[in-house]
């Protein structure tokens, strides 16, 4: 749709506002993998309540907006369960090893001109583009 980029920009600004509230209010970096990962490995034990409430907001906000949309909401995730599991494992391991994902390294890192954030973003975008090219256009499996 031609209006997709406008919704992208509006949604992006909401994401950035969320990050600004979390930073200026709570003094924390809004990174999805770090917030969830810290609950799983115990490193975020002292801020567990804050993390759980944040994740609750992430899950509930789409539910509130959902009725405003007159279309069926679909993530269009591949039905190939092997691909889903492999991708999930790679995303889980990779974001914790790199200590950040699209929100932490991408949004919060690039906006403070962090070299680590910029380099991480370049590498995950290149790896993502290359993987998609190979698996879709060479192997034809996704």
């Amino acid at each position: 749709m031609e209006t997709d980029w406008i919704w992208g920009l509006v949604g992006g600004m909401l994401i950035g506002l969320g990050g600004a509230v979390y930073l200026l209010g709570n003094g924390r970096i809004m990174g999805a993998s770090g917030i969830l990962g810290g609950l799983l490995d115990g490193s975020g034990r002292n801020s567990a309540a804050e993390r759980i409430v944040f994740l609750f907001g992430v899950v509930v906000a789409p539910l509130i907006l959902w009725p405003l949309y007159n279309v069926e909401i679909d993530t269009h995730l591949t039905k190939d369960i092997v691909v889903v599991i492999a991708a999930g494992l790679l995303v889980g391991i990779g974001t914790r090893v790199a200590n950040g994902c699209t929100s932490g390294h991408g949004v919060c890192g690039i906006s403070r001109f962090s070299l680590r954030g910029i380099v991480a973003t370049v590498f995950y975008i290149l790896a993502g583009g290359l993987t998609l090219a190979v698996f879709r256009h060479v192997l034809g499996v996704i």
């Binding site: 889903v84 999930g88 995303v91 990779g94 974001t95 699209t102 380099v119 790896a127 998609l132 996704i142």
Partner: peptide
Amino acid sequence: RLITGSVMFGMGWGLAGLCPGP
């Protein structure tokens, strides 16, 4: 770690189109 982790994350991201937030 930053490089290896980001490459692994990117591969998974490309395969399924999902990152942790979404």
